[in-house]
Design a protein around this nucleic acid. Structure first.
Lengths: 132, 132
DNA sequence: CGTATATCCGTGCGGCTGTACGGCTATGAG
DNA sequence: CTCATAGCCGTACAGCCGCACGGATATACG
């Protein structure tokens, strides 16, 4: 069903210049959509902690990951399924045990650069909120 | 109800050393949870594009934002409500029109540094996927 | 005052997401 | 061969999320 275009929906810009300027240089809907997918992938405590754990110790099996993070094995399995599908982790079978590691082409700076900054950012925001 | 600890749930680590090592230096559940909140906030095409638009042109009203992004005003209002609640944007009333801008304490590097990298990353991943 | 406009708010709904459970598969031990 | 273990998969369910709609509110204009 069509959006709420029943009546007039703000036809004339209030500030046409800025609208045009924003439109021209704006992040495309496609880029934003891909970005959102990537961020959603990282926006889960179990998934991000798994990535950090694998960054620390190179290789871990499912059960040990659950122990290290103190979450259920089901949660780890589910998280790994998603990370695997996204191509962020690889696995290797050794007997009955399956070891996971970061994918070969895993973007290095992501964890230590980008996410680390965001963690500090969210801590700062938290403090500001607590002070109110 | 308790998780699936009905039977034994992998009591002995396969590689105790690595489990301990991961546990000690791992991102805490709290940090990961806060990080997830922040990432969820950014993991929406409308919200991220609004932030980029405001970064570009300083100030825009709701209707013009909808025009610039080519989405419904409802969607913009909803997105702004969330960004406002999170303290990422501020507004200013001028007559019937309400102008939005990035909050004073908006973390500068976030958009141009951090997210820009992630956009490129997601583009690269997309290309790899397309080649298969 | 009455009308039109810009935006917000409450509500409802469809869709997605994370988890738990039962059951399946594959491997190894006896 | 039989049994136990590590992990996966399909399913079901509860919770959340984003959007559209109706209606409210505030401001401007005549």
């Amino acid at each position: 069903m069509a959006p709420r275009s029943t009546s007039l929906e703000h036809d004339h810009p209030v500030d046409p210049g800025r609208v045009v300027q924003a439109r021209e240089r704006l992040v495309s809907a496609d880029d934003a959509s891909r970005l959102a997918s990537l961020l959603s992938l990282l926006a889960d405590p179990v998934r991000s902690r798994i990535l950090y754990a694998l960054d620390l110790v190179e290789e871990l099996c499912v059960g040990d990951l659950a122990l290290a993070l103190e979450v259920s094995e089901d949660a780890v399995t589910y998280a790994l399924r998603i990370l695997r599908t996204a191509g962020l982790v690889q696995n290797r079978r050794d007997g009955r045990v399956i070891f996971y590691r970061l994918a070969d082409n895993f973007p290095e700076p992501l964890l230590e650069h980008c996410l680390r900054q965001l963690i500090e950012l969210s801590e700062a925001a938290q403090r500001i909120e607590d002070e109110r």
